[in-house]
Computed example of a mutant assay.
Amino acid sequence: MEHARNEGMPLATEMFEGHAVNRSAAERRAATIGARRSVKKAYQAAWLVNAVRCIDLTTLAGDDTAARVRRLCAKARNPIAPHVMDGLGLAGMGLTTGAVCVYPTMVVHAVRALEGSGVPVASVATGFPAGLMPLHLRLEEIRYAVGEGAQEIDIVITREHVLTGNWQALYDEIAAMREACGEAHMKAILATGDLQTLGNVYAASMVAMQAGADFIKTSTGKESVNATLPVGLIMLRALRDYGQATGYRIGFKPAGGMKSAKEALIWQMLMKEELGRDWLQPDLFRFGASSMLGDIERQLEHHVTGRYAASSRHATA
Rank of each mutant, 00 (worst) to 15 (best):
residue 162 V to M: 02
residue 134 P to V: 05
residue 17 E to V: 15
residue 133 M to G: 05
residue 192 T to Y: 01
residue 299 Q to S: 11
residue 233 L to D: 07
residue 237 R to P: 00
residue 95 L to H: 10
residue 7 E to Q: 12
residue 24 S to C: 13
residue 22 N to H: 15
residue 33 I to K: 01
residue 38 S to M: 12
residue 25 A to F: 09
residue 256 G to R: 04
residue 154 D to M: 08
residue 2 E to H: 14
residue 172 D to N: 14
residue 268 Q to K: 02
residue 71 R to V: 09
residue 31 A to Q: 08
residue 90 L to M: 15
residue 44 Q to T: 06
residue 243 G to M: 00
residue 30 A to F: 05
residue 249 R to I: 00
residue 136 H to S: 11
residue 109 H to F: 10
residue 185 H to K: 14
residue 294 G to I: 02
residue 176 A to H: 06
residue 209 M to S: 12
residue 111 V to P: 00
residue 294 G to P: 00
residue 95 L to A: 06
residue 308 Y to C: 02
residue 49 V to N: 09
residue 274 E to N: 03
residue 313 R to C: 10
residue 232 G to A: 13
residue 17 E to T: 14
residue 185 H to V: 14
residue 302 H to C: 14
residue 79 P to A: 01
residue 258 M to H: 08
residue 286 R to E: 02
residue 105 T to C: 05
residue 77 R to Q: 07
residue 48 L to G: 05
residue 162 V to I: 11
residue 273 E to N: 05
residue 70 R to Y: 06
residue 234 I to P: 04
residue 157 I to F: 08
residue 60 L to V: 05
residue 193 G to A: 01
residue 153 I to C: 14
residue 122 A to L: 02
residue 206 M to D: 02
residue 225 V to I: 15
residue 200 N to F: 08
residue 188 A to W: 00
residue 120 P to I: 06
residue 199 G to S: 13
residue 308 Y to K: 04
residue 267 W to E: 04
